[in-house]
Design a protein around this nucleic acid. Structure first.
Lengths: 102, 102
DNA sequence: TACGTATATGAACATATGCTCATATGTTAA
DNA sequence: TTAACATATGAGCATATGTTCATATACGTA
């Protein structure tokens, strides 16, 4: 806001936006979030669909949990995950439809 | 599309979406793109506004160029950069307004 | 031509990221 | 309690990323 008529982003804002984009910057997390955008899923279901190890999936779910992008509920020994940030899902869908409409 | 009624992303689609999000996953690139979303800028102007070294800015511009997210025109020895992907700018603005409207 | 300014680029380095492997934790059932 | 299953987690490793430093390239001017 100095020297020009234009504004520029604060470091805090840029960092926060970066946090959101970083969350979406990995193919595995994209696939997980896309799955969860359609249905609540158990960890084992995600593991089968993505054809990845249980550990790899669990680590990524941990990342998504820390970012508050997913939540879960327990049913017996099974954990059912679902998305927890509508806006991020919207952004994801927009980018996906952009890709398919090229 | 097998075993459930739901679809899941191909690796290629997830990778492509990841490429776009990765481009936006760094605060410096976010600041640069936000600046360019408002006005065409020379490298030296970007360098001053972001208070970064000329080299760091130039490297990031190189990254953005490879991703075809920015373009430039030459005027004498000065290069003026501008954005080259309307859709990515839209996504950026959406996330930024999401942050500010929390 | 030689010099100054604007920008790009390669190498090196520190940090971040995503996976694997081994193992821990929590739940159910016998 | 013990065994089996579902999931989480820590350590280690290979690769990716962002910056700095030094230098190269391109253009304008004297």
């Amino acid at each position: 806001m100095e020297r020009t008529d234009h504004s520029f982003l604060s470091q805090a804002t840029a960092d926060e936006a970066s946090r959101i984009f970083k969350a979406l910057a990995d193919p595995t997390r994209i696939k997980i979030l896309y799955l969860l955008s359609q249905e609540e899923c158990s960890v084992s279901h995600i593991t089968e669909v993505l054809e990845m190890t249980q550990s790899a999936v669990s680590h990524q779910l941990s990342t998504l949990r820390k970012l508050r992008l997913v939540k879960y509920r327990r049913e017996g020994s099974t954990l059912y995950y679902s998305y927890d940030d509508e806006h991020v899902i919207t952004i994801l869908h927009q980018v996906l439809s952009h890709i398919n409409c090229n």
